[in-house]
Simulated assay, not measured.
Amino acid sequence: MLSLLNKWYKARFSDPQAVTLVMIIIGLALILYFAGGLLAPLLVALVLAFLLEWPVAQMLRLGMNRSTAASLVLVLFVGLMLLIVLVLMPSIWRQGLALISDLPSMIDKGLITAQGYINQYPQFIAADQLDSMVNQLKKMLDTQHLLDFGKQLIGYSASLLVLMVYAILVPLLVFFFLKDKDSLIKGSKRFIPTNRDLARKVWYEMHQQIFNYIRGKIIEIVIIGVVSYLFFAIMDLRYAALLGVLTGLSVLIPYVGATLVTLPIALVAFFQWGISPEFGYLMLGYGIIQALDGNLLVPILFSDAVDLHPVFIIAAVLVFGGLWGVWGVFFAIPLASLVKAVINAWPQLPEEQSAQDQAQQQQSAEQQVSS
C-alpha cells in the first residue's frame, strides 16, 4: 500500500511547478479558514478593489493618473453605497419589523384556513396532528422570542466598533489597493516561490472568469431585485421592497435560493389575498421572472464565466458555504471554477496525454462525419 502511494505521489508531484501550486492553494485556504474573521475587512477591501479595478483601468486609458482615477472611482462607489443605505435600507428595515409584528396574525389566519380544510377533508390529516404542529409552531414563533431575537440583532448590527471598521478602514484599504496595485503585487512576489509558472497559468485562466462572474452576479442581483420589486408593487403586495430585495439576493445561491425565497412570497400573498385570482397572478408573474432569469439572463451574463455541471455547482455551494458562510456561497462558483482550472492545468502523465489526444482526435473525426 505504501509503495503504491509513493508511486502515485512521485508521478503526480514530481513537477516543482505542481508542488508550488499546491503550496499556494493550501496556504491561502488555511489563511481564509483560520484567520478569515480577523482579516474580514482586508478581504472585503480586496474584493471591492478587484471589482473597481476595471473602471480605474478605463480611466488610465484616457490618460488619467492612477491616484486620481482611484480617488474618483472610490468617491463614486461610496456615494452609490450611501445612496442605497440612506434610501433603500430604512424602507426594508421598516417592512421587516412590520412583517415580524404581523406574523402572529398571519399564523392565526393560516391556522383558521388549515382547520377549515381539515374539516372538509378529514381523511388526509387528523386534528391532533394539526394541534401538535400548531404547538411546535407557536414555540418557534413566540412573540417574545422574536422580540428578543430582534433586540439581539439590533445590538449586533449597531456595534459602533464594527461599523467604524467597515465604514472607515475598508474604503481606505480599497483606495491603497487601487492606487498602489503594482507596488503591492511586486512586493508580494517575494513570499511566493520562483517556480510559479503553473500557478500563473491558472490565475490568468481564472482572472477574467472571476471578474465576469462577480460583475454578472451583481448585475443579476440588481435586475432581478428591481424587476421583482416593481412587479410586487404593481400587484400591491405587502412588504414589496423587502421581498424584492430577498428575491434579488436569492440569486446568490444557485438553484436553492429561488426555492427558499418562494416560500415567504407565497405565504405573504396567501395571507393577503387567500386562494384568489390575485394570488394566482402573483405566483405566475413570479414564476415568469424566475424562468427569464434562469433561461435568458443567466446565459447572457455568464456564458463565458461558468462552465460547470449543476451537480458541481450545488456541491460547491454546500461545501464553501459551510466553510465561509455568506462569502463562501457568493464565491462558490468561482472557487469551483478554480478547482476545475487547477485540474485542467495539472501536469499529465504521458499515457494520459496520449489517451486524451486520441479521444480529441476521435471526437473531431465524429464531428466531421456528422457535419
Rank of each mutant, 00 (worst) to 15 (best):
K10A: 12
R12N: 08
F13H: 04
V22W: 05
M23A: 08
L28S: 10
L30Q: 05
I31Q: 06
I31T: 10
Y33M: 14
G36I: 01
G36V: 02
L39C: 08
A40S: 12
A40Q: 13
P41M: 04
L43T: 07
L48Y: 15
A49D: 02
A49T: 00
L52G: 08
W54F: 07
Q58V: 14
N65I: 15
N65T: 15
S71P: 00
L72M: 13
L82A: 13
L82Q: 13
L83W: 15
I84Y: 15
I84E: 15
L88P: 01
S91A: 13
I92N: 01
Q95F: 14
D102K: 05
L103H: 01
P104T: 05
P104K: 06
I107M: 10
D108G: 05
L111F: 15
T113N: 08
N119R: 10
N119D: 09
I125H: 02
I125A: 13
A127I: 10
Q129D: 10
M133P: 01
N135P: 02
Q136R: 05
K139G: 12
M140S: 12
L141C: 00
G150P: 01
L153V: 14
I154D: 12
I154Q: 13
L163C: 03
A167C: 06
I168M: 05
P171H: 07
F175R: 03
L184N: 03
P193V: 03
P193L: 02
R196A: 13
D197Q: 08
D197E: 09
D197K: 09
D197F: 05
L198K: 03
W203R: 00
H207L: 07
N212Y: 04
G216Q: 03
I221M: 10
I223P: 04
V226E: 00
Y229N: 05
Y229S: 03
I234Y: 09
D236N: 13
D236L: 11
L237Q: 14
Y239L: 00
Y239H: 00
A241F: 12
G248W: 04
Y255T: 15
L263D: 01
L263I: 15
A266I: 00
W273P: 05
G274V: 02
I275C: 02
E278K: 12
Y281A: 14
L282W: 05
M283C: 06
M283G: 06
M283T: 13
G285L: 08
I289A: 04
A291R: 03
L292T: 06
L292V: 09
N295S: 12
F302M: 15
S303V: 11
I314P: 13
G321N: 08
W324V: 15
W327P: 00
G328H: 08
G328T: 09
V329M: 09
S337C: 10
K340Q: 09
V342C: 07
A345C: 07
P347Q: 03
L349K: 07
Q353T: 14
Q353N: 07
A355Q: 09
Q358C: 04
Q358V: 05
Q360D: 09
Q362Y: 05
